[in-house]
Amino acid sequence: MSTIELLSPIAIPMMSADESAKLRVTQNRVVRSEWMKMRTLRSSWLTLGLAIASMAGIGIIISWSTANDWANMRPRQKARFNPLADPLSGLFLAQLAIGVLGVLLIAGEYSTGMIKASIGAVPRRLPVLWAKLLVFTSVTLATMLPAALITFFVSQKLLSAQHIQTTWSSPDVARSVIGVGLYLTVVAALGIGLGAIVRNVAGAIAVLVGILLVLPVIASALPQTWGDRVNKWLPSNAGQALMSLGSDNTTLSPWRGFAVFCGYAAATMVVAAVLLKRRDA
């Protein structure tokens, strides 16, 4: 059949029958691949570093400056200071970094074209999404929970110079500090889901910021009776109930709020999974 002679055959490295018999896509292998993907991008390290720096840096700076300035502070400022909530306020910036990284991990593949290689290697597609979710939520929990703990304990140490610290065993404390790690872990899932749905980095980040930051601002402009009813159900308000001190009827109870936030993230992931399976890559 061949009409053309082979001039200089190229020796293509072959795999042994043993080796090729072991080739198989498994969820574990896809998880390992996604872990490598995350590790091998500079943007992952930068964004994760930014999240840790925001979480710990802001809290520690607030505690340090408060402790130093305590003698000069006005009584009203002193009354407003909360030794648990104020050191944890880096959370508001950290959630953006975590959400953005979640978006980047998947929408970044669409903008570069990498998704075609990813889906070509795992044509059943969903294992890729689950692996990204597992890898990134684990990384988030494993970094942000320690970051919250360190922020808390370093802050209390600094505040103890003025005897204005709180303790781990005080009401709300353990739940709030651990809650920071849990809340950010769910934000990570939300970022992955939105990135997979929107498939465009800038667009998905805009939606993320809209949901976490802009919605509560808009809702706060509602008349109070409406606002009280709607506000607490918004994703970020529901999730942040986990870090609330005491409770009133404007917020959901801590674990109920967190469950609602998890529900939003789960719904986002379901939509992402259906779309990933249905749409052309």
Binding site: L23, R24, V25, R29, V30, R32, S33, M36, K37, T40, L41, R42, S43, G108, E109, T112, M114, A117, A121, V122
Partner: peptide, 17 residues
């Protein structure tokens, strides 16, 4: 992905299977 090295790109695909 333009931010990944050639070897890492291949390693990432190789890992899936």
């Amino acid at each position: 992905h333009t931010g990944r090295s050639a070897r890492n790109h291949l390693m990432v695909l190789a890992a899936t299977t």
